[in-house]
Amino acid sequence: MSTTEIGGPSWRARLRALTPNTRRVLYAWAAAVAVIAIGSLFNPDFATWSSLRVMLVVASFIGFVAAGQMLVVLVGGIDLSIPWVLNGAAIVLTTTSLGQTGRTGLALALALGLGAVIGFANGMGVAWLGVPAVVMTLGMNGVMQGLTLGLSKGLTCASCASYAPKPLREVFVDKVFGVPAQLLLWAGVALLLTVLLTLTTFGRRVYAVGVSPRGAYLSGVSVRGVTVALYTLSGVFAAIAGIALVAYGGQPSLGLGDPYLFESIAAVVVGGVSILGGRGHYVGVVAGSLTLVAVVTFLQAQRVPEYGRSIIYGLVILAILLTYGREKSNA
């Protein structure tokens, strides 16, 4: 202990000098590295590039939905409509493309447009009508589920058997210099979100609204405008995840998006974003998504039965939250 003090400030002091936001990103990456390190103790192949690549691809699906979830969580909201926006967009994509290369553009535009419209409606409901975010997005999830099931007749409609068009598969699945194209897309999303949130006026406004909507409003920030924009983006990201999932799987299924509701929230908080809003970075959420996938992959590799995976998954999230997800005491 004393030797480190002679050589300069101790690592503890340096850690304390960081802003809470940066510190939480570090914790999130430390958690991801720890899980992968523990995994490779049991199984030396766990941390090889080919294994990591698979985990990263699986994590990228969570990463896309968590991007949208993080944006609304930053302003103290939550998006529970992700599962069926994702599923709806996936089905819109295959049923309008009919598997034909020539219709790829149209299908993509419609799927992304659907996400944007639903996200916009969520935002309007929350910001202008004053409906609590939980209620608005929960109701919207039901609306989207009903519409998706009803309009596709339970995924038995004539065009429901269509596959995703071939170019889309290439864009997502093919490798560029040995890296799956989807990972490059995820890196692009991470870069874009980080620039948007840290270097632009819009980003500063997002954090301002998250810390104090009232304070932001009084300093001239259009709180409603920011909120609507973020919910719209969340819908778009859910649609992107849906597109990526059908690009990989070829065809959508019903309930495709269901696991992503709670996983997106878990990735966001394991990534060091405060559920109360105003704090967190997407770089941390990338680590959070990877941590969740690494835990599940490790347990599957150890042949832990499903019930054990579920229990340990919950315990790991709790342990991570106990280390850096605690709220300040108000006593």
């Binding site: 929230i265 878990a266 229990i311 315990l315 709790l318």
Partner: peptide, 14 residues
């Protein structure tokens, strides 16, 4: 002092 939504999300899994 973990937020209720996160606590119960983790225990839901357990």
């Amino acid at each position: 002092r973990i937020a209720p939504i996160l606590t119960t999300l983790a225990t839901l899994s357990i």
